[in-house]
Simulated scan of single mutants.
Amino acid sequence: MKVLGIESSCDETGVALVETRAAGVPVLLAQALHTQIVMHQAYGGVVPELASRDHIRRVLPLAEQVLERAGVAKAELDVIAYTRGPGLAGALLVGSGVACALGAALGKPVLGVHHLEGHLLSPFLSADPPEFPFIALLVSGGHTQLMRVDGVGRYELLGETIDDAAGEAFDKSAKLLGLPYPGGPGLSRLAESGDPAAFKLPRPLLHSGDLDFSFAGLKTAVLTQAKKLGDELEARKADLAASTQAAIVDVLVKKSLAALDRSGLRRIVVAGGVGANRLLRSELNAACAKRGVRVHYPELDFCTDNGAMIAMAAAMRLQANVQAATAVYAFDVKPRWPLAEL
């Protein structure tokens, strides 16, 4: 079974094709991705209307590229999958509209996919896919969650952010330091030349006794420290970036270890854009190695939004008989859609 996946939830247009086999994890045949970073840099962040218009221009040419690379004709497709939510409403409507129109034109069923489930299952695209059950640290954009994953569609929320997510803490702190959009990766690069112990920044909810997160207070602390530095900020910017990153990573690692301890599981998956952070990977790998815990990540290309994770999630849901594709082409989108509602 061949599944075409379309991702258009925010500022990346992604299309990919996966194929299910008689046994094992579905195989990625081809993928293509266009990022809108350059377009949004002039505005210091994503402009929803511009994002939607750019998806309209990109999605069909990308689909053609994917099918050509895979050597697959449109008529050979079995299912068209798309991101139904969460995300920007206008951007989601582009991908869902194209997917349903394509399905109707070809007489193929369609399947709406949860964006966060795509991230959650993206490590199955790697050369070393995980096995169920596992703890998942989902750190994607505006989401930071810890989940117990017992199988496809079998998710238990253990803890989540009560305000800013880790990705937002990176991006907002970067903006306070005067770094250009996208701020998170820029802050991480700058931090490599700084001293992570230079400033004592808070670790919100680190000793709360639960598995929830909070990063809004950290952002405020970064702002306060930047104001204190005044004219010295430019000279100390790398140190402040390194201290900020260290605080975020410290909370993520310790909460993840607490989730492992409470569950008794010996496997953890890290997914989402922040999962590409080098310090997070290094610290979590070292902590888990001491405990004999396996850690799995998506390949770096699949940490940020992409069509492969949507195609994979759809294929795995179909393979596990969790959800059926449908030939009903009326569609809606869910800009706000908690993963726990699946």
Rank of each mutant, 00 (worst) to 15 (best):
F213Q: 02
V293Y: 10
E341D: 11
S52I: 05
A308K: 02
D305N: 08
G292V: 04
V79M: 06
L4N: 08
L211Y: 03
T220E: 07
A105K: 12
S122N: 12
G307E: 09
T224N: 14
I248F: 05
R281G: 07
R294Y: 06
T35A: 09
F302T: 01
S8G: 05
P129H: 09
Y181L: 02
V18Y: 03
V270D: 10
G90I: 00
N277K: 02
E156V: 15
I6P: 06
A91W: 02
A216N: 10
D195V: 09
A166L: 04
P335F: 14
L77Q: 02
F134H: 09
G275V: 14
I6H: 01
Q31K: 13
E232V: 07
A247K: 00
F170R: 05
P182A: 10
A99Q: 08
N277M: 00
Q41D: 14
D164R: 08
G14L: 13
S256W: 05
G24Q: 13
R57V: 04
V269W: 07
L265R: 03
G5K: 08
D231A: 15
S126A: 06
L206V: 13
D332L: 14
R266S: 15
L29T: 05
A101K: 04
L179I: 10
K237M: 10
F132P: 13
L157V: 13
V98D: 02
E19Q: 09
S256T: 15
E131G: 14
L260A: 08
Y43Q: 06
L67N: 03
V152T: 01
K2I: 01
A30Q: 12
M147P: 04
G159M: 11
L93W: 01
E299M: 08
T244K: 04
M147F: 10
H114V: 04
H143N: 12
G159W: 15
L190Q: 12
A324I: 00
T304W: 10
E168F: 10
L93Q: 09
D150P: 13
G186H: 12
L205F: 15
A315F: 00
